[in-house]
Structures are given as C-alpha cells and as structure tokens.
Design a protein around this nucleic acid. Sequence first.
DNA 1: AAATAGACTTAAACTGGTTTAAGATCTGAA
DNA 2: TTCAGATCTTAAACCAGTTTAAGTCTATTT
Lengths: 192, 192
Amino acid sequence: MSLQPLIDHFDRFIPLEAGEKLLLDGRVSQRSIKRRQAILQEGFPCKHYSFVVAGCFRMYAIDQSGVEHTILFATENEWIADIGSFHSGQPSKLFVEAVEPSVILQIEQKDLYFLYLNVPKLDRIFKVIVENKYVELQNRLLQTISSTAQERYLAFLDAYPNLASRLPNTQIASYLGITPEFLSKIRKTIAS
Amino acid sequence: MSLQPLIDHFDRFIPLEAGEKLLLDGRVSQRSIKRRQAILQEGFPCKHYSFVVAGCFRMYAIDQSGVEHTILFATENEWIADIGSFHSGQPSKLFVEAVEPSVILQIEQKDLYFLYLNVPKLDRIFKVIVENKYVELQNRLLQTISSTAQERYLAFLDAYPNLASRLPNTQIASYLGITPEFLSKIRKTIAS
DNA sequence: AAATAGACTTAAACTGGTTTAAGATCTGAA
DNA sequence: TTCAGATCTTAAACCAGTTTAAGTCTATTT
C-alpha cells in the first residue's frame, strides 16, 4: 500500500516533516472499490474520510418517491465523506458509490482525531480543504437556484469535461436536478 | 467595544487561555450596521470575516436579469463572509446586507492570518465552524433539488421560526428560489 | 386628511420541465 | 451469435412555478 498520493496531497498545502509522515502509518487503509459498490449507505454512520486515489465517486440521496439526487462527484485527489454524520456518529441520509473501479485511502474517525491532536498542521490543512469544498458547494447552490437546466448542463460540461463521458446520462441528469428525458431534449436543442 | 460575545463563541468550541484572548485585542473591530446597509458588494473583494453579535444579514447574488437569489441568512452568533473571495482576494460576486439594524465584530484578513499563526487552536475552531457551515449548506442544496416549493417553505418555517416574521416576503421567496407571487399562492393553499 | 410609496395578494396566460409510454440503441453474458 | 437488461431518445399530455398586470393594504410623509 502506498500513502504517497495522500502525502503529496498534504504537502501541496503545507509540507509535512518526516516524523509527521510516519504518524500516518497504520492509520490509513487502502481499498479497491468496484464499479457501483457503495462505501456509504443511508442509515449507517459515515465511519471514514475517503481520499480518492483513482476513479470516481458519486454522493447522492434518495427522496420519498425513490428518486436519486446527486449532490456531488469526487474524482482523483478529492475527499469524500458525509461530514455531519462522520462527526456526530448519527446515521447518514446519503449514499456514496463508485462510478467506476476506484482506489481510495480511508481514515477512520479515531485515527483522524489522533492525527489532528498529534499533527496540528492537519487542523490547518483540513480547514483549508473544507473551505475549498464549501466554496465549491456554494457556487453549485447559486447555480442551481439561478440558472436554467440548459445553462447548468453547459456549465457542467465546462467544469467537468472528462467526467461527462465517464458518467451515464441518468447520473448527469440527477446531478443537474432534471429528468434524463429532459436532458435528452436539451442535448437535441444544443446539437441543432 | 466588547469582544465578549466572540470570546464566548470561541470558548464554546475550545476554551481559550487569557494570553490567547489578549491577542484578539486590536485585531477585531466592532461596527453598527443600519438596515439595508451592505457590508460586502459585488465587484469588491471580501475583506473581513464578520461575526454577528446582534441582528441579521442576508447573502445574495444578482443574476444577469437583475433577479436576487438569497444564499443564506446569518443571525446572532454566526459568521458571514465570502470565503472564496476572502482568501483569494478576487472580487466577490455576492452581496451581504443587513436585514435589520445589526452589530458585528469584524476581523480583517491579515489579522485573522496573524491569529491563525499565534493561536493554533483557531485553526481547529474555524475548521469546525466551516464544517458546520458546510453541512448546513449541503442540507440546503439537497432540499433545493429534491423538494417542492411548498415543502421548502414549510421546512424554512420550521428551521427559522423567528426569522420568518423578521423578513419581508420577497426575501423569503428569493431564499426559497421562487417568486413572491408564488409564495403568496403557497400561503393561500396552506391556510385553507 | 391626502398623497405617495413599498409590500402583499389575486388571477389569467404562459413556459420550463415532468410524466408516461413507446421505440431505438447499446452492452455484456451465455 | 443472440438474447435480455440497461440506457438513451422521441413525443404528447400534463403540472409546478413564472409572468404580467391590476388591485389591496399598510405605513410614512406632507
């Protein structure tokens, strides 16, 4: 197992010292996840922060009518977790599932708390990580409430040019907050 | 000027020591803000993190057609800032405006960075603050993409029972992502 | 008391997006 | 190679929410 992608990731925020890197040993575990395999399911607490080394994940909720709503995608070098459930221990209302075969590095709650205590830099690093995720989410919310479906689709293509081809149409629609049928319609209008 | 509300706020996360509290002196400034007065305007970088001591603020964006979209409200003991613009120095795309006469405590970027360096606890505290804000925003996004306007309105009443009466109807509508006219319609259906 | 203006409501016509249903295309397993 | 299950598209009827426009209700100013 290699922690290198994670260490590189941290180093890009603040360089860690050798001793700090050693503390990571045994507190991070690597897993290979198959396409469509879930790493978090509704009703269970979120036990890990997961760092995507390779592949892609999708976080979504299922509403009362059984419709899926995609909150975000996480690709290489991104973190994915239900932060609320992770800290509170309460059952999550979300699913996190691999969109394609993936490799992740996971940290359990007790290990992450240990690391926060013993590598104070990590408080700073994760503060910045969460700030960045917050800004992203705020932009997504703003776009969701202020643009038409077509604008959102074009913005999605623009923001994630490589993701669009890796995802089934239904998942793109569920991210955009529309039906797959309407996504087809949009594509048709754009093409002409 | 009293820093007490801010100190109490920090203490609720991790108690600060006397020396740490002293470092806040001169790095936090108090301002009284009139109803409708802006503390951040589109086109200007966000220079401060603002802590609401009393009153209420609204963060919104104006789209190409001149329509306002409310992203969030911040009331007593909450922080409000355009985090992205604050750290990058880039012009903000957002407005932040007092909904009612308010009092805030503001920290400028250089002062906050100084405090992060000299009071490492603040890295931890702000990590937790941003995490909480992230969770809130994620719930809001999820609700926006998965519920009807009426469901969102009822949830809003439930989550902010006291806010509803303090706000003009147009601002509630802009938070819910609907027109004031449709909000009237919803109220009528609920009442009957 | 009258005048002005901002906030809220009502209602009819309209539109962006959904629903339902059917057909087309693709994929992988046997 | 073929068959079965997904996935994608098309189209018509439908509905949630918008637009436009007019009217009501306060509150404040004069």
